[in-house]
Amino acid sequence: MGVFERFLKPNTLYYPGCLTSTVLKELEKNYDALLKLSGINYIKIQNIYCCGSPVRNAGYTNDFEKLARKNLEILKKYNVGRIITSCPACYHTLRSAYREVLRNEWNIHVLHTVNVLWDAIENGRLGVRETKNDGIKVCYHDPCHLGRWERIFTEPRKIIKTLGYELVEMERTMLDALCCGGGGGVKANYPELAGEIAKERVLEAVSCGADILVTSCPLCYASLKHASELLENKKVRVVEISQLLLKSLHGGRKE
């Protein structure tokens, strides 16, 4: 892309979210690889701030508004027209909560990686191997911010099926999905409570007969994985959807 194009055409930003960029760096690498394989041109911004999700949920309204304004300024400076994030909390915050405080000033299109990657698969830009996963049962844990709060249920399930896995559902799923226990600040404020709920969710995955419990949220992933270790559960493997995707990929045709 030339200098002039860069000025003319709004940029796409990949915004991993703080948990992914500071703690679960492996996931960020995964998404970098997947987005590149999908032929998506994107930028990353090192000095961007937290989206404000934990700040808002904890009741620090003024701080939240400040973060939204500071981020808006940075995004304008980088001429960002579209944000792709792999974090459901960031997705919900950027997509819905920013509009509440920034009103019409906020006109950036926000996408979650499950939408972007499913789109790439469907359009043949991201090639997947389908057959090898035959007979492996996978259940999908709907992250609250992505499912209930933003109504994204089908794309992740289509991805799982396209990869050749057998999709099974837990007792409570989609709109009724049980939270991983970590949202709303509970993970940090009350770790034992969050852990107990996460264990219940892992056991639900075990009882639905799944071999793999997959989710598309870094916090759900960390919570469920931790609970699975505490339970010394050997039946279900907890993975984040990027890990599942990378295993079954070969590059597709480029954009």
Binding site: G17, C18, L19, S21, T22, V23, L24, K25, E26, N47, I48, Y49, C50, S53, P54, V55, N57, A89, H145, G182, G183, G184, G185, K187, A188, N189, P191, A194, G195, P218, L219, A222, S223, K225, H226
Partner: peptide, 22 residues
């Protein structure tokens, strides 16, 4: 620091009560 974790060197083994996200 602009993020809830402060200065953290990436590690999945972060203590649960330091997982300030969401």
């Amino acid at each position: 620091y602009g993020n809830p974790f402060g200065k953290v060197e990436g590690s999945e083994a972060l203590e649960p009560d330091k997982m300030y996200c969401c």
